[in-house]
């Protein structure tokens, strides 16, 4: 059995986008081939202007089991949003 190519995750930033979005994955022998193949497979319909490829093995993800512990504390801190603070009508630029 020949050596299997590593797995890469592909991220694309669209023309009007601010951030790269994960669009899928592919196997490629090296970074150059990964970018070329990502272009061929994930940008046929003008999906983006920038491609990142990252070895899947290098990605560290939070555990689904930790969802509660990690994200629950933010639920009670709604004052982080400006809309929590109503401002008087006559006061401008706030």
């Amino acid at each position: 059995m020949s050596k299997e190519w590593p797995l890469w995750e592909v991220f694309i930033r669209s023309q009007h986008g601010l951030a790269h979005k994960h669009v899928g994955s592919l196997h490629a022998p090296d970074a150059a081939m990964a970018v070329n193949n990502a272009r061929d497979v994930y940008t046929r319909r003008n999906e983006g202007v920038s491609i990142w490829v990252v070895r899947a093995a290098d990605i560290v993800a939070s555990s689904p089991l930790d969802k509660e512990a990690l994200f629950e504390p933010a639920n009670s801190k709604v004052y982080r949003h400006p809309t929590f603070f109503p401002m008087p009508e006559q006061v401008k630029n706030l």
């Binding site: 059995m1 020949s2 299997e4 797995l7 899928g24 994955s25 592919l26 196997h27 061929d40 497979v41 994930y42 046929r44």
Partner: peptide, 26 residues
């Protein structure tokens, strides 16, 4: 040709989905 290219892409998305279940492409 564009349609045929799409089929290759579809194969890739699906192989990728299958591989998340713990099986290799080979």
């Amino acid at each position: 040709l564009a349609k045929i290219q799409d089929e290759a892409g579809h194969g890739l998305y699906l192989y990728s989905a299958a591989e998340t279940l713990g099986v290799s492409r080979d």
